[in-house]
Design a protein around this nucleic acid. Structure first.
Lengths: 226, 226
DNA sequence: CAAATAGTGTCTCTTAGACAGTATTTG
DNA sequence: CAAATACTGTCTAAGAGACACTATTTG
């Protein structure tokens, strides 16, 4: 690590420059089982020094920690989510006045989790936590509306070419219809055509010989991830 | 700005947490007029406190400055480039040991500039500055190889659907062939087919009635940006 | 006129989209 | 058997890619 003061090209020591605080804020996306829409997890902030209102879960970066670790820590400590998540970096928000408590930059992240994982934490703390459809989100604290917008765009783009890249479908086996419904929930609109959807997804999946049982109508073929 | 100490959820004041220094590093991409390959601008670092070797131009974030402003300042002060550039954020590099001078996070940026703009500064300071083909870059300081890789990927992706989105072609009028040669330089390989290239680009351009003059072969139609 | 480059016409193959018609289940 | 859902086959339109052929210049 640093063994002494070093200077930049203007001869100023690094520590002479006030540096910003660095935060991470994370859009946790999920599709609630009942509703067929993509949702984002929000936390109510009303601590003594915090601004009051809804926001994304976040925290300040701790010493020697990576951004991904800070994201995992914030999701574990503030929400109660498991620590195995792999967050995706989105963008650094750097407006000097974005946080009126001080000079705080935020590295926005996104992670998508199955409803089975998110539901228990929301049920456990209904006064603190809430899942809201991404297309209805507005009025969040700081610039978190914009983070949700970017996170949504990122996930929708990822789902446009690959079958469930974020494993929102927790089941090992699933029908083409179930996959399509998930993709429609993520996209926020019906797929252009079932035919095209099937043709686009089949090459990326393993076609099993198993079928659904007990459902109404002709039993559907079950697929597996490749 | 901050009116007093505030605390996080564990009751610790923000200033109790050591915070990292925040740097910006920028991949300046260009296509040298003679060579038909995409290049990146490198600076030789050999100051007293700096590591010795080739790296991207960068700087530390100053107080109340945005990241884009820091990028412009670093390009102006360390390279001599004009200040009107619009940098694109790529990724935050956060390995705690990525800079052995201390805990430094870097927000990597990319910007593409016409050779007419880059050439003068390289010619003026041949011992400090160098443009090297992106596909030949390796052994840069810190994790700058990775930044160049990401910057290249970003630019190539941008050029795959739009005609010269970064205005690397400084001329107002240009032939389809010239545009294609630029795109081939950026992509690092020939376009799959001139026919397809023309068909993909024409809708995004204005077809003028002017033609090239004095060139060998049939004079080519000139196009303009929309 | 030969060489060089630009531009057009058109054929084939693939894919998207639409949709009719068949298959297999539940109740 | 009616209703519901799954699946197949096939037609059409649009686009990608290939390429022959025509056009217009220089030397």
């Amino acid at each position: 690590m640093s063994t002494g003061v070093y200077t930049d090209s203007s001869g100023k020591a690094l520590t002479d420059y006030p540096q910003p605080s660095l935060a991470v804020d994370t859009a946790v996306l999920t599709v609630p089982g009942d509703e067929r829409r993509l949702g984002v997890l929000l936390v109510r902030r009303d601590g003594a020094n915090e601004q009051v209102g809804l926001a994304l879960p976040g925290t300040f970066l701790h010493e020697e920690e990576t951004l991904a670790e800070a994201v995992r820590r914030s999701l574990r400590d503030k929400v109660g989510l498991p620590a195995e998540v792999v967050p995706q970096q989105l963008h650094v928000f750097d407006r000097p006045d974005r946080d009126d408590r001080g000079w705080v930059l935020s590295v926005a992240h996104v992670v998508a989790l199955p409803w089975q994982v998110v539901k228990p934490v929301v049920v456990a703390r209904p006064d603190d936590l809430e899942v809201r459809p991404v297309d209805d989100v507005s009025g969040l604290l700081f610039d978190h509306d914009e983070i949700v917008r970017r996170a949504t765009e990122w996930l929708r783009s990822a789902y446009s070419t690959q079958p469930d890249p974020s494993h929102l479908l927790a089941d090992e086996l699933f029908t083409m219809r179930r996959l399509q419904q998930l993709h429609e929930a993520v996209a926020g609109r019906p797929v252009s055509s079932s035919d095209t959807f099937r043709r686009a997804m089949e090459p990326h999946l393993v076609k099993t010989e198993r079928r659904t049982e007990g459902s109404i109508g002709k039993p559907a073929r079950l697929y597996r991830r490749r």
